Amino acid sequence: MSVFLVLGSVVSLQFGAAFASQLFGQVGAPGATALRLGIAALVLAVVARPRLRQETLVLGMTMAGMNGTFYLALDRIPLGVAVTIEFLGPLGLAAVLGRRPRDFVWVGLALAGVVVLGVREYTGAKLDLVGVALALIAAVFWACYVLAGREVATAGLGTGGLAGASLVSAALTLPYGLSAAGTALFEPRVLLLGTLVALLASAIPYTLEIRALKTLQPSTFGVVLALEPAAAALAGAVLLGQHLGVVSLCGMALVITAGVAAALRRAPASRERPAPRDADLGLPVPR
Rank of each mutant, 00 (worst) to 15 (best):
G124F: 14
A110H: 03
V130C: 01
G245R: 02
Q54C: 10
L174F: 11
V223N: 04
P205N: 05
L79S: 12
L129N: 05
T207S: 06
P50N: 07
P268D: 08
F4N: 09
D278H: 01
I39R: 01
I210F: 01
I204L: 14
Q242G: 12
V105R: 05
A17G: 10
L264F: 13
A138P: 05
F141S: 00
G60K: 02
R150T: 01
L174K: 07
G149T: 13
L162D: 12
T84S: 02
F221K: 13
G118K: 03
A133C: 13
V114A: 09
R265T: 15
A155I: 08
R53N: 04
E272A: 07
A258I: 12
A201T: 08
L13D: 07
G131I: 02
A232H: 05
V190H: 04
G60T: 05
Y71F: 04
A18Q: 08
L264H: 13
N67G: 13
R273Q: 15
L44P: 03
A133K: 06
A20F: 11
A95Y: 09
L192F: 07
A34V: 11
A17F: 14
V119F: 03
G65L: 13
V140L: 10
R189C: 10
T69G: 02
A125W: 03
H243F: 12
V168I: 09
I85W: 08
Y122C: 06
A226E: 08
G282W: 13
R266F: 12
G177N: 08
A139P: 07
G236L: 04
V10D: 01
L196R: 01
A133Y: 10
K214C: 04
L283A: 12
A279Y: 09
L52Q: 00
V107Y: 08
V152M: 14
T183D: 09
T69R: 02
R36Q: 15
W106D: 10
L178S: 13
P30Y: 11
L234E: 10
V260M: 15
V140Y: 03
Y145P: 08
A279R: 06
G16D: 15
A212R: 00
Q217Y: 09
L193K: 01
V119P: 00
L44N: 03
A201L: 05
W142M: 06
A143R: 02
G108N: 01
G282P: 11
L227H: 05
A263D: 06
P175T: 07
L52K: 00
A232S: 08
T207C: 02
T123A: 15
L191V: 11
S9W: 14
V3F: 09
E55Y: 08
L35W: 06
R150N: 02
